[in-house]
């Protein structure tokens, strides 16, 4: 019995993947152990801001991907406005879905 999963077009063998992953992990560990040992004490905690004074508050890691959400600002403005949280709107969406499915099924 083979341990491969046949997936429509190709196949997937997790154990082979795991073996390759472990070998790569070993190689990267070897490369890492060849690095400079004295580096990193007391330096890594402070962020480098090109000599400017680092902004203390306001920006934190939760703001990661602000670029993504900023680029999609128009989309987000519309979509967040749709999530009103009013129970009447929830019912309206349900009725709309029901009507659309009904029209599609009965007319086509």
């Amino acid at each position: 019995m083979s341990l491969m999963l046949i997936t429509g077009v190709g196949f997937w063998d997790p154990l082979a993947f795991l073996a390759g992953f472990l070998i790569l992990l070993l190689i990267s560990y070897i490369i890492r152990s060849m690095g400079e040992e004295s580096y990193g004490k007391g330096i890594q905690l402070e962020a480098f801001f090109s000599g400017d004074i680092p902004p203390g508050k306001g920006i934190h890691v939760g703001n990661l991907y602000w670029g993504f959400s900023d680029a999609l600002r128009g989309y987000y403005k519309k979509v967040v406005a749709l999530h009103t949280g009013i129970v009447n709107d929830y019912v309206a969406w349900f009725v709309a879905l029901m009507a659309i499915i009904l029209i599609l099924i009965t007319l086509i």
């Binding site: 967040v80 999530h83 009103t84 949280g85 009013i86 129970v87 009447n88």
Partner: peptide, 9 residues
């Protein structure tokens, strides 16, 4: 009032 809600977005 159903418009007075805290959960949204």
């Amino acid at each position: 009032d159903s418009k007075k809600r805290r959960l949204k977005g």
